[in-house]
Write a protein that binds this DNA or RNA. Structure first.
Length: 751
DNA sequence: ATGCTGGTTGTTTTT
DNA sequence: CAACCAGCAT
């Protein structure tokens, strides 16, 4: 009895109801900040401690790895025994596991590779070559998207080829078949296959389905509004017997329709489980009432919503602030100056502040100004860690060692680092593999042993033979080494580091990335040696950029940092202060969706997600001009902001840093813009300091920039007088941009 | 075999 | 404006 009390203490009546409803299907509609994760964790604890359900009979599925980790941690805090058997996984992670165990039923061996989008594109390109179709007419990305849609609708290549109605579909059909053939030969799956093949295994093998539905007697699915039809069908199969399925979601936060997520799954759920109970959580424990009012009135513009109005006991809070600026850089300056103020004057730690935007490309201007103002930040997403060349190269070696059929991995590294294997040689080998219907690895082995006739020159044969010996050698030692040693071994054997050093500019970052990869493999050393490699690879394939950055942070620092993040990735997170930037028609809502009512409503939900991330301070900003496809365009305030009641927002208009200073300071202004361009490529930041800026010199201390000649200039220091400094070489940082922003209060402006 | 250059291309969100 | 690629020069 006391255990029960402990688990239920501190929960609202509604929350208690959700936690204790364990038998039979439950639909939990949970608004932002309504304590959803808490309820889910307590529900699991309730199942274990009160209902005495063994932990291994419980399966909790989330959308992201981060959510999975969070939920698992919270459950583990509440559950006292056998917590290691709790299954908390992402959909993809769960399916991958099923396939490792049961994949042999469908011709998939345990060591299958998981292909990411990059790999997929290469396979698509190869498919076009195999089919002798000119790829120039088609974009691989589009084809992948179509194939993905087909897979999510459970349409096989064979079925699709029978339904073809026009020439373009005919081509897609042929490519689809080839693509799937190559994957099968490579003993590989793509992300959709993880779900699709799991579905087929359950659907076709009653005894396997029985085994797992008997095991997972209690199933809990998070972010249900983001599941696609395929995921729902897997879920239905698994819980059809026991019907102890709890799905948690919020239709207003459905933002993944482009990945074929289907929010009508929520209503489908009611149809499939007519005996289900629905509980709605709409009390927010996160945001102020002003923020919730803004969110409510925005989302009310969407059609066909069930009425759900967020409310809170947190009090109304301050008003929301809208910054109107004249350029992208001004926007970044103003936002970051305010962040600096919040941090220094109001003592708000940087890690409680986030800048959120619609598209990744928007992060650039903020990064540049962050560097200039010496604000530490972490960029979530963007160029993903595991997407970097050097990381992918090393992973390709590991993949090939783990799965010799992985042609895509092989082709990536056959001549990386350079070992004298030409493109011509590679295409000859690929051609042979296609003709013989075997893998490239097999073909090269045959060539080496002179068991197959080729028109390759002896030198080429020698090169590829050495390559095969290298791979075989790595393979042999792989069983006797920890994963970390194995990676080091590969790097040594291939002389990968000296290969990187040839590009002086980029080598430092790249070597760092390699070291980080090695460091990240460390946590697998405890595992059995035969699963170290495969679980390392699997986790890397299924882990998102968000997750990776997090683990990376734990290793190297605990210093606080500002977060830069897309609105999509921000779902599920919360910050004390949120800056929703780029609130412009064409950006939010995105151009692609204007004119399409359904797409527009999804954009509105994206905006809604952003707003509801904020606990106490919410800022919007937009710029009246923005660089787009190489030319400047005029922008207008996002229609979504005008849907928020005016009395909730304080507008602050910036008179324009750029316009003010261009005439008297045009040199530095232009230099400044140049800076913005070069920033991205080189790690060494070129600093140009504008006159009037406050700077800090390692030796001379604080000073004010008096003159700026571009490359160099003069700075006045209180104790050392005027000094001439080269901006690129002097040990200085910018304390305060000279741009002391000129705001005009709306009242004064109109007066 | 490798590296450079100039022309062409596409542009949202990601497990 | 970028990233990418094909074709050319080394």
């Amino acid at each position: 009895m006391s255990i029960k009390k402990t688990i239920l203490s501190g929960l609202s009546d509604r929350q208690k109801e959700a936690v204790t409803h364990t038998e039979g299907p439950l639909l939990l509609i949970a608004g932002p900040g309504s304590g959803k994760t808490r309820v889910m964790a307590h529900r699991v604890a309730y199942l274990v401690a009160v209902k005495k359900i063994p932990t291994n009979n419980i399966l909790a599925v989330t959308f992201t790895n981060k959510a999975a980790r969070e939920l698992k941690e919270r459950c583990e805090r509440l559950v006292s025994y056998q917590k290691e058997f709790l299954q908390v996984r992402t959909f993809h992670g769960f399916c991958s596991r099923i396939l490792r165990f049961e994949g042999e039923n469908i011709g998939l061996s345990r060591d299958f590779s998981i292909f990411d989008e990059d790999d997929q594109k290469k396979v698509i390109k190869r498919s076009f070559e195999d089919e002798n179709i000119d790829i120039k007419q088609h974009s691989p990305g589009k084809i992948i998207s179509v194939i993905s849609k087909l897979k999510n609708s459970i349409i096989s290549p064979e079925k699709f080829s029978n339904e073809v109605t026009n020439f373009s579909e005919e081509i897609i059909s042929r490519i689809f078949s080839r693509y799937q053939d190559i994957l099968l030969k490579s003993n590989a799956v793509d992300f959709d296959d993880l779900l699709l093949k799991t579905f087929h295994i359950f659907d076709d093998n009653k005894y396997i389905l029985d085994k797992y539905s008997d095991l997972y007697r209690y199933i809990q699915i998070d972010e249900f509004q983001d599941t696609n039809p395929l995921q729902f069908r897997v879920t239905k199969l698994l819980s059809d017997q026991n019907r102890n399925l709890c799905v948690v979601g919020d239709p207003d936060q459905s933002i993944y329709s482009w990945r074929y997520a289907d929010p009508t799954n929520l209503t489908e759920f009611k149809k499939s489980f007519p005996e289900s109970t629905t509980i709605t959580l709409d009390q927010s424990y996160r945001s102020t009432q002003n923020i919730l009012n803004a969110a409510n009135s925005l989302i009310n513009n969407n059609s066909a919503r069930s009425d759900k109005n967020l409310w809170t006991n947190n009090g109304s809070g301050g008003k929301l602030i809208l910054y109107e600026t004249n350029s992208e850089e001004d926007e970044a300056r103003i936002v970051l100056n305010e962040i600096k103020r919040l941090n220094q004057s109001e003592n708000i730690p940087l890690d409680e502040i986030a800048i959120m935007y619609r598209v990744n490309a928007q992060s650039r201007s903020f990064e540049v100004i962050c560097n200039r103002l010496a604000i530490r930040y972490r960029l979530i997403g963007g160029v993903k860690f595991y997407d970097r060349q050097e990381v992918k190269d090393i992973l390709a070696y590991l993949r090939l060692v783990s799965n010799k059929s992985d042609d895509t991995a092989l082709l990536r590294i056959i001549n990386t680092p350079r070992r004298g294997i030409s493109d011509r040689t590679v295409s000859e080998i690929t051609r042979l593999a296609r003709e013989e219907g075997s893998t490239i690895f097999e073909i090269i082995s045959l060539i080496k042993e002179e068991k197959i006739k080729t028109n390759l020159i002896p030198r080429a044969i020698k090169s590829i033979s050495e390559f095969i010996e290298l791979v075989n050698n790595i393979f042999e030692v792989s069983n006797q080494m920890d994963i970390t040693d194995l990676i080091n071994y590969i790097i040594d054997k291939t002389e990968y580091r000296s290969y990187l050093r040839r590009d002086e500019e980029k080598s430092i970052t790249r070597l760092e990335n390699i070291n980080e990869l090695i460091a990240s493999s460390d946590q697998y050393i405890g595992l059995d040696s035969d699963v170290q490699l495969s679980s390392f690879l699997e986790n890397l394939a299924l882990v998102s950029s968000v997750d990776f950055l997090e683990t990376g942070d734990q290793i190297d620092s605990n210093s606080e940092e500002l977060t830069l993040i897309t609105l999509h990735q921000a779902k599920g997170l919360e910050y004390k202060v949120v800056f929703l930037v780029g609130c412009e028609d064409g950006l939010l809502p995105h151009m692609m969706s204007i004119g399409d009512i359904e797409a527009l409503e999804e954009e509105r939900r994206i905006c809604y997600v952003g707003i509801t991330r904020a606990k106490s301070h919410l800022y919007f900003s937009y710029s009246t001009t923005r660089m787009f496809r190489g030319s400047f365009g005029g922008q207008i305030l996002s229609r979504f902001i005008t849907e928020i009641p005016e009395h909730l927002i304080v507008r602050k208009r910036n008179m324009g840093y750029s316009n003010f200073h261009m005439p008297e300071n045009s040199v530095s202004y232009n230099k400044d813009k140049l800076d913005l361009k070069t920033q991205k490529n080189s790690r060494s930041e070129k600093l140009i300091f504008l006159t009037g800026s406050k700077v800090k010199h390692d030796i001379f201390g604080e000073g004010i920039v008096m003159k700026n000649f571009g490359e160099d200039g003069e700075v006045l220091f209180s104790n050392f007088g005027i000094k001439k400094l080269m901006w690129n070489y002097a040990p200085i940082i910018l304390l305060e941009d000279q741009n002391e922003i000129n705001f005009i209060d709306p009242e004064i402006d109109s007066a």
